[in-house]
């Protein structure tokens, strides 16, 4: 894959915006439409654009496959971890109200952590899928 100058310039210009938008969707998700899954997909779209513009080698130097695997596991762990933390605090599974002293603040913290877990998992898994397919196409 020979990277293309025009695409490189455009990617350099666009990727920061894509990432900002992704973080907006991720962390503003409790006030406007959005959430972890959407944000994760947008982040992985940025990763795909990066690979298209700069090549797989450079991208893998940034985020190796192994790191992506770890990240996707960490996201699920964060999700279930929050659920179990609710259990330990005396509530039901995923009952965020008990996380903090204040019910509403607890709900807030809970949903942000959960969505963060979802976001991390989705972003890393989709990127992982793309990377794996890209590797495959180069073998054959």
């Amino acid at each position: 894959m020979r990277p293309d100058l025009l695409l490189k310039v455009l990617a350099k210009f666009l990727i920061p915006f894509i990432l900002i938008f992704a973080f907006y969707v991720q962390f503003h998700g409790d006030f406007s439409p959005g959430g972890g899954f959407q944000a994760g997909v947008i982040i992985s779209a940025a990763a795909v654009l990066y690979v298209l513009a700069f090549g797989l080698e450079l991208a893998e130097r940034g985020i190796p496959l192994r790191a992506l695997q770890y990240l996707s596991s960490t996201g699920i762990l964060l999700y279930t971890g929050v659920g179990v933390a609710c259990l330990l605090k005396g509530g039901n599974f995923l009952d965020y109200s008990v996380l903090l002293d204040n019910d509403v603040a607890g709900q807030h913290l809970g949903i942000i952590l959960i969505e963060l877990g979802v976001g991390i998992t989705v972003a890393s898994t989709l990127t992982l899928i793309f990377f794996t397919f890209a590797h495959w196409s180069r073998h054959s």
Partner: peptide, 10 residues
Amino acid sequence: YFTNPTASYC
């Protein structure tokens, strides 16, 4: 306006 022409070009 940026992405569309670039995509066609690519």
